[in-house]
Design a protein around this nucleic acid. Structure first.
Length: 440
RNA sequence: GCGGAUGUAGCUCAGCUGGUUAGAGCGCUGGAUUGUGGCUCCGGAGGCCGUGGGUUCGAACCCCAUCAUUCGCCCCA
């Protein structure tokens, strides 16, 4: 019989306790900020019928990158590759009963059949935040402000990340009116803009030239150059500055500054791959070039709820991925040292196991997390186990301690031993716990 | 799906132009130490050299295939 592999499935991770501590820290911090803005958590099934993706995200995400299979009832089923269609379905299902604006968030896992590499795996977790029923720019302001606050909640400073903002309707105006491209040409040009930073200027020029109708090539290239030469919105060509789309972008920037969001910048090349975005789009990037993948992204997608045959509901949402976010925290050394939830390891001396278990039970009754060594091993082995498990306190329990009800508590890191009554034992441990919570 | 790199002990890696029984450090484990860890000293376990073929008198080393990991492209969190 061949050896079974201990490796997890390609592109998926096992989370040992020390890994899961990090994950829990991420999720809890995400949840805390989302709830601070009045968002409520929801959940949907991991499997969705293929149809709900067919109409919208379209493109490669579903066709090439999803886990698609036929179930025993001959239904075409997809393991969710993203949350947006699911939450749209959720809202469409109770569109009349929900209180608007509906503020919803979730932390869930997703799978995409893609080649794993730095910052990208096949199974990943996302925080998804969406607001339904607000057609005005105030929805974008709220979400981008929250995104900024999430970064701050992890201790990030403004210089560590950049929030890039663009507008799909502005892009549409640019493509159709300014560059005078038809629908097919616009699609190609948008894809090219998206790749701008990954290819050389010469390649960009050549590929752009191929998209224009022959007579318009030289004029078109000049116009593109004028676009990218603009360092601020004010530098953009007049025809664009006069458009309605850009006025909205300007309003957004003004409001974000009033909310104290400093890391924002306008990026006319920001496209985002998903087809359903209709207006403002944004992404957050690590300013450290080693982690160039976007940390999160989102935007306005007013049409999606309407696909379920109901009145469309204006929506803005974004998602944060756990993989790139962990990379961000690591490269900026923002991950705190996280400890086990176990607070006390009971080292049993001699044959006092029964008495030790009784005392442990009393401690548990007081809300203390206690692990008892039930192996009967020598003391040094028991201590080594406690140290290896990173448990902050060791409680030595032998006949003497149990008889005298005077307990020896060792602070593992500080190497100090205290002789305490039961009541003092409990307060000492709880004081330590509160000190830990303050750090995080 | 396309291109590049890498697979030797649990981990990080040595291993000469192919030449006997395969090496180190860390880790693990037992002891020195019968009620106190981290330091020190002594012992021990653990490898079909990713897998399958091929070349050769002989392969960890050369060739082919395959799988896995990793970097980039595509795409995206």
């Amino acid at each position: 019989m061949a050896m079974l592999s201990t490796q997890p499935y390609k592109g998926a991770r096992d989370f040992y306790p020390e890994d899961l501590r990090v994950q829990t820290y991420l999720f809890n911090t995400w949840r805390t900020v989302a709830e601070r803005y009045g968002y409520e958590e929801y959940m949907t099934p991991m499997l969705e019928p293929l149809d709900i993706y067919a109409a919208k995200s379209g493109t490669e995400l579903v066709n090439d990158e999803s886990y698609l299979f036929v179930d025993r009832g001959n239904r075409q089923v997809v393991i969710r590759p993203e949350m947006t269609p699911s939450v749209s379905r959720l809202v469409a299902g109770r569109r009349q009963e929900l209180a608007y604006p509906a503020r919803l968030y979730s932390v869930a896992n997703f799978m995409r059949y893609q080649r794993p590499q730095h910052g990208r795996l096949r199974e990943f977790w996302q925080l998804n935040v969406d607001i339904f029923g607000v057609p005005t720019i105030d929805a974008e302001v709220e979400l981008i402000t929250m995104a900024d606050e999430i970064m701050k909640a992890f201790g990030a400073t403004d210089k560590m990340y950049a929030i890039k903002i663009n507008s799909r309707s502005l892009v549409n105006f640019m493509m159709a009116e300014y560059l005078e491209l038809d629908v097919v040409q616009s699609q190609l040009m948008m894809k090219l803009f998206d790749r701008k930073d990954k290819i050389t200027p010469a390649e960009f020029r050549d590929q752009a030239a191929e998209i224009f109708d022959q007579p318009k090539v030289s004029q078109g290239l000049k116009k593109i150059a004028a676009l990218f030469a603009a360092k601020t919105m004010g530098d953009l060509p007049k025809q664009i500055i006069d458009s309605n789309a850009i006025k909205q972008v300007q309003t957004l920037f003004t409001l974000l500054r009033e909310h104290g969001v400093k890391s924002v910048m306008f990026d006319i090349g920001l496209m985002r791959g998903l087809d359903y975005y209709t207006d403002i789009v944004f992404e957050v990037f690590d300013t450290n070039p080693e982690n160039s993948r976007s940390l999160f992204g989102g935007g306005r997608y007013d049409g999606l709820v309407g696909l379920f045959g109901v009145e469309p509901i204006p929506t803005v949402g974004y998602a944060i991925g756990d993989v790139t976010f962990r990379d961000f925290l690591q490269t900026h050394k923002l991950l705190p040292r996280l400890h086990t939830t176990t607070e006390v390891y009971v080292v049993v001396l001699g044959d006092s196991l029964k008495g030790a278990q009784k005392l442990a039970q009393r401690l548990r009754g007081e809300g203390v997390n206690v692990e008892v060594d039930i192996t009967g091993r020598k003391v040094d082995k028991q201590i080594k186990t406690a140290v290896k498990k990173d448990i902050p306190f060791i409680l030595f329990l032998g006949k003497k301690e149990l008889d005298e009800e005077n307990y020896t508590l060792k602070d593992v890191a500080g190497e100090k031993e205290h002789h305490l009554s039961f009541a003092r034992l409990v307060t000492t441990i709880k004081d330590y716990r509160h000190a830990q919570e303050d750090v995080i």
